[in-house]
């Protein structure tokens, strides 16, 4: 076993950055292109540190997303919890994948996440009528290698600072 000398402050910091990216005002035409930042950060942490970040955190983060977005309280919580459960179950395998294959898995996971949200939206009567809704899974996949490397580098720097 490796002795954990990691500074776990990096986890809330990355989530904070993801929240800011989620809220940051962007030009109108990018509305559907915004990647699922929070979910990507969540996938990263559940994959690499499943004992620190798992279902409970996913649920709380989801409720925070609902509060910030003004969506029905609990809908993001539900979607994030289910997706995180899958990641927890597969974390050992996901960690072994090359980045490209990881990106593909992220694509499927974001798609599932959007599908759950889509269903809930359907229940409360405001279904996205545009196919562009699903584009976010694409952008998340494309940006995954970059996010992965960013968090990993940040983690190393944090660890170095805390030593």
């Amino acid at each position: 076993m490796i002795v954990q000398t990691e500074n776990w402050l990096i986890i809330p910091v990355t989530f904070l950055i993801a929240f800011i990216l989620m809220l940051l005002p962007m030009p109108d035409w990018t509305a559907w292109l915004r990647p699922a930042w929070v979910l990507m950060v969540l996938i990263y942490w559940t994959m690499t540190a499943p004992h620190q970040v798992n279902l409970g955190i996913a649920w709380i983060v989801g409720v925070m997303m609902d509060l910030l977005n003004g969506t029905l309280l609990g809908e993001h919580a539900l979607a994030l919890t289910i997706v995180t459960y899958l990641v927890v179950r597969m974390h050992a395998r996901l960690r072994m994948f090359p980045l490209l294959q990881q990106g593909l898995s992220v694509f499927l996971l974001v798609l599932l996440y959007q599908f759950i949200l889509f269903c809930i939206q359907g229940f409360i009567g405001e279904l996205p009528s545009s196919w562009l809704y699903w584009l976010s899974a694409m952008t998340s996949m494309v940006l995954w290698p970059w996010v992965f490397n960013m968090i990993r580098d940040g983690r190393r720097r944090f660890r170095a600072a805390s030593l």
Partner: peptide, 20 residues
Amino acid sequence: PGFRLFFLVVLAILLMILDK
């Protein structure tokens, strides 16, 4: 984790119903 998933999903659905 399966049990926790079940618990949290029920909690989320409860929250949604309450909110709505």
